[in-house]
Simulated scan of single mutants.
Amino acid sequence: MGGNDNRFESKRTVFVTVGTTSFDSLVKAVDTQQVQEALLKKGYTHLVIQMGRGSYIPKKSSGEDGSLVLDYFTFSPSIADYMRSASLVISHAGSGSIFETLKLARPLIVVVNEDLMDNHQSELAEELAERKHLFCARPQTLNQTIEALDLDSIIPYQSGDATPVAKLINRHLGFPAD
Rank of each mutant, 00 (worst) to 15 (best):
G2L: 10
G2K: 14
G3E: 13
N4Q: 14
N4T: 12
N4I: 14
N4E: 15
N6H: 13
F8R: 14
E9G: 12
K11V: 10
R12P: 08
R12D: 11
V14I: 06
T17L: 02
T20P: 05
T20W: 04
T21N: 07
S22F: 01
D24H: 08
S25D: 14
S25P: 02
L26K: 03
K28A: 12
A29W: 01
V30A: 05
V30W: 06
T32R: 07
T32L: 07
Q33S: 14
E37G: 12
E37M: 12
E37V: 08
L40Q: 14
L40S: 11
K42N: 06
K42G: 05
T45K: 09
V48F: 11
M51V: 11
M51I: 11
S55D: 14
S55V: 11
P58R: 04
K60C: 05
S61G: 07
G63S: 03
G63D: 07
E64N: 15
G66Q: 09
S67I: 04
L70K: 15
Y72N: 08
T74K: 15
F75H: 10
F75E: 07
S78Y: 03
A80S: 15
Y82D: 12
R84Y: 12
A86M: 06
L88R: 05
V89Y: 02
A93K: 03
A93L: 06
G94S: 09
G94M: 05
G94Y: 10
G94E: 09
S95W: 11
G96D: 04
S97I: 08
S97W: 08
I98R: 00
I98S: 00
I98G: 01
F99Y: 11
F99L: 15
F99I: 09
L102N: 00
L102I: 07
L102Y: 06
K103N: 14
L104S: 01
A105L: 09
R106A: 07
P107N: 05
L108P: 02
I109T: 00
V110W: 08
V112K: 04
V112S: 08
V112A: 09
E114I: 10
D115E: 13
L116H: 02
D118S: 10
N119G: 02
Q121G: 03
E123D: 10
E123N: 04
E127G: 01
L128C: 02
L128P: 04
A129Q: 01
R131E: 10
K132Q: 11
H133I: 03
L134I: 00
F135A: 08
C136M: 10
R138I: 08
L142F: 06
L142S: 03
Q144A: 13
E147D: 13
D150A: 10
D152V: 04
S153I: 05
S153H: 03
Y157G: 00
Y157N: 02
S159M: 12
G160K: 13
D161A: 08
D161Q: 02
T163W: 02
V165R: 06
K167P: 06
K167N: 13
L168V: 02
L168C: 05
I169C: 00
N170R: 14
R171L: 12
R171D: 10
R171K: 15
L173E: 06
L173F: 11
G174A: 08
G174Q: 06
P176W: 06
D178A: 11
